[in-house]
């Protein structure tokens, strides 16, 4: 970016196509509810769109800025509800073969059992990593934790969850 450039134009089409699935899946992992995930995704993009003039490219990547908004939207959601929403197992579509559909249902149900009791911070990290697909560095920027800290927590968490997953299998 040229520092003298007065304004920078970002291609909203590209941003939307790239970030929508990430934000949506962040909320799926964060709130465990399809409809709520859609509502919160919409809220996030509407807020981002309204405050787009405040985005400073020299300060952060666009995805960091967007996920900071998404994170706050999730915090507001839980503050309003005061309770965690139980995970609903989304039924696979009719086109999905029966065996595959059953396997998917089982996996989702099992994942729910593993993730539901986690503390809020750990669930947020899982949502950012496996829902949004962010790198540890990006997660560190969004959450304010150090990259090393994020890596350590996730490593410990995944190890713990994998053990439980394998035991259940």
């Amino acid at each position: 970016m040229n520092a003298d450039t007065a304004t920078q134009i970002i291609d909203w089409n590209a941003v939307y196509a790239e970030e929508l699935p990430r934000v949506y899946n962040f909320f799926r992992y964060r709130v465990y509810d399809h409809q709520a995930a859609q509502d919160l995704t919409a809220t996030t993009f509407e807020k981002a769109w309204r405050s787009r003039s405040q985005y400073r490219r020299d300060r952060s990547a666009f995805s960091t800025w967007l996920f900071t908004i998404a994170r706050n939207v999730a915090i507001d959601y839980y503050r309003r509800r005061r309770v965690d929403v139980p995970l609903k197992a989304d039924l696979p579509s009719d086109a999905t073969p029966l065996d595959e559909a059953q396997q998917r249902r089982d996996d989702i149900r099992q994942l729910k059992r593993l993730l539901a009791p986690l503390p809020s911070r750990e669930r947020e990290l899982i949502a950012l990593k496996y829902g949004a697909g962010l790198t540890n560095r990006a997660i560190a920027r969004v959450t304010g934790l150090s990259e090393t800290n994020v890596g350590t927590i996730l490593h410990r968490l995944v190890k713990h969850l994998r053990t439980q997953w394998e035991q259940a299998a």
């Binding site: 520092a3 003298d4 450039t5 134009i9 993009f45 003039s53 985005y55 400073r56 490219r57 020299d58």
Partner: peptide
């Protein structure tokens, strides 16, 4: 459709610190 109802479908980034 909802969020791009405004005329421009781009994000305008604010001035750089030097500018």
């Amino acid at each position: 459709r909802r969020i791009s109802a405004e005329p421009r479908v781009t994000i305008t980034v604010s001035f750089s610190p030097l500018a």
